[in-house]
Computed example of a mutant assay.
Amino acid sequence: MSQEDMVKEAVEEAKAKATQTVEEESEEVTEEAVEADGSEEEILEDEALEETEKSEKKLFGKKNKKDKKDEKIEELTDRLTRQMAEFDNFRKRTDKEKKQMYEIGAKDIIDKILPVVDNFERGLAAVPEEEKSHPFMEGMDKIYKQLMTTLGEAGVKPIEAVGQEFNPDFHNAVMHVEDEEVGENIVVEEFQKGYTYRDSVVRHSMVKVAN
């Protein structure tokens, strides 16, 4: 082989090595670039995740913390509810007091009317049997019956006494007698009729009790 050929061969080998070296360096640079790009993408993803977490924290934080306007609404609503309950209790208490006052007033009026009823009954009982058919006496009897009907419609009722067992809630015993013909603690005579108004005693019956 001539010297010239040896020189050419050496040059070709040098070119081939140089080309191989450049290719290897290019591959390394490419791999590093890819790795760098991957790292940058990961960094960007991490930053985006952190921003999302911060936004969620801010968002949930706002939800958990009540707005001043909402707190004011709740306060006013609670106050209104309490005032409505107080007003309802006041209304019920007032209605009850009115009812009690009405019944007290009604019982007071009835108590004043009862002596008139007593006088009617005494006067009618004293009329002889032959005079009861007189027009005047018939008129008085009708007035008495009308008065008793009116009192009955208003809730006034006479208390049953004679033949009933003595009851201190309705009867006032003013006399006591021993009588074997009647049972124990039985009312045998009524001196003054008692009356009730709506299940409340206006006047107790004055009675005589046996045994």
Score class of each variant (00 low, 15 high):
M1E: 08
S2T: 14
S2W: 00
E4S: 10
M6C: 00
M6P: 00
A10I: 15
E12F: 07
E13M: 09
A14D: 02
A16R: 13
A18L: 09
T19D: 12
T19L: 14
T21K: 13
T21F: 08
T21N: 12
V22P: 00
E25T: 07
E27G: 00
V29H: 06
E31W: 08
E31D: 14
E31V: 14
E32V: 09
E32Y: 11
A33V: 10
E35K: 15
G38I: 11
E40T: 11
E41M: 11
I43G: 11
E47M: 09
L49M: 07
L49Q: 08
E53N: 09
E53V: 15
S55N: 11
L59R: 12
L59N: 04
G61R: 05
N64Q: 10
K65Q: 09
K65C: 01
K66R: 12
K68R: 05
K69T: 13
K72M: 09
K72F: 02
I73V: 13
E74I: 05
E74F: 04
T77R: 14
R82D: 13
M84L: 15
M84Y: 14
A85H: 12
E86I: 07
E86R: 14
F90T: 13
R93S: 14
D95T: 07
E97H: 06
E97C: 02
K98L: 13
Q100H: 06
M101Y: 07
Y102T: 05
A106G: 01
P115I: 06
V116C: 10
V117P: 05
D118Q: 02
D118E: 14
D118N: 09
F120L: 09
F120R: 07
R122N: 10
R122K: 15
A125D: 14
A126P: 00
A126E: 14
V127W: 07
V127K: 06
E129M: 12
E130D: 15
E131L: 15
K132M: 11
S133K: 11
S133L: 06
F136Q: 10
F136T: 13
F136W: 00
M137C: 06
E138N: 04
E138K: 15
M140V: 13
M140S: 05
I143Q: 04
K145L: 10
Q146A: 14
G152C: 00
A154P: 00
A154S: 05
V156E: 01
K157D: 03
P158A: 03
A161Q: 01
G163C: 02
Q164H: 06
Q164N: 04
E165F: 01
F166W: 03
N167M: 02
F170Q: 04
F170H: 06
N172P: 03
A173V: 02
A173L: 02
M175A: 13
M175T: 10
H176V: 14
E180S: 11
E181D: 07
E181G: 13
V182I: 08
G183H: 07
N185R: 08
V188S: 09
E189F: 13
E190I: 04
E190Q: 08
Q192W: 03
K193D: 03
G194V: 03
T196M: 10
T196Y: 01
T196D: 06
R198P: 01
R198N: 15
V201N: 04
H204W: 00
M206Y: 08
N211D: 03
